[in-house]
Design a protein around this nucleic acid. Structure first.
Lengths: 147, 147
DNA sequence: CACGTTCTTGACGTTGACGTCAACGTAAAG
DNA sequence: CTTTACGTTGACGTCAACGTCAAGAACGTG
């Protein structure tokens, strides 16, 4: 009934093998937790913070494709080191109403801020990788001199 | 006596304008804290965790170039979202003794692990930036249709 | 229909990363 | 020689991000 095989630490936001045609497909909390490799407590915590808002059938949570999309975005944000509160403002942006012109311009301004942040991270990341490369080279030279 | 002008959120690990010739130059805790844009409490916390280990003159801490280098690495690691404990193992790696062959090979293995981690982050980052770009395009199209 | 499985809502505990006092030492400046 | 500016060590507080019970409700299955 649900998808399998989603190893943690992937770049994709969604686990694969999800029937693309069924927009009406739903999942239980255990299913989404398993597929995304988190506990149900984590999923509930994200709901408490307003990161996802599953439907309720009676008292039970029912997750739709939209919730999975958002959960995927949350976890990628976490892998990138963003705090959950900040992640919420970001993904809320994607779902924000953009009817009026002022709203659209606000959204565009937010996008610029976000991009600046991400690009700073990219520079840090490239610098760290470059240093790692240089360090490995020196280590290999040391190793060459030893034998 | 000390350097100025280091805005937070830079990619460089060290504040600029530091006399490159003086290896014997030292700094107080207030100086390094100010230059790196953190509190003295933060600097002490990092010392508690073994991230830096300044010299002591009597009871007073004296910071050398080495400490500043490590502090810079710590803060960049933080900007990348790594926990402090993990940061410690990473930067300790740079200072690890590599005398024996087995040590060198251990270090090289660690480097590979680190690189894999960083590259995963890079993929996440690129994906996030790509999504942001696509989203901006759609917003601009909406904006174009409105006027 | 009893039973085990899965779901629910609290509520308290924990860990990381510091902030925030309090209380005290020390060294230069007026 | 007192004041002022920094420095020091605790020790406790706080906030985020969950973990970890506890104690029911609801649901399919033999």
């Amino acid at each position: 009934m649900t998808s399998q095989r989603t190893s943690p630490g992937t770049t994709d936001v969604l686990p694969d093998e999800v029937d693309p045609a069924s927009d009406a497909m739903t999942w239980t909390i255990a299913e989404v937790a398993d597929e995304f490799g988190v506990t149900h407590r984590t999923v509930r915590h994200y709901e408490d913070l307003g990161l996802i808002s599953p439907e309720r059938r009676g008292t039970t949570r029912v997750y739709h494709r939209r919730d999975r999309t958002r959960l995927g975005l949350v976890l990628r944000g976490k892998r990138l080191g963003f705090p959950l509160e900040e992640i919420r403002t970001i993904i809320d942006l994607y779902d924000a109403p953009r009817g009026r012109r002022s709203q659209l311009e606000y959204v565009l301004a937010q996008i610029d801020e976000r991009r600046a942040d991400l690009e700073q991270r990219r520079r840090d990341l490239e610098a760290a990788l470059a240093e790692l490369d240089g360090f490995e080279r020196r280590c290999r030279e040391d190793l060459g001199r030893m034998r």
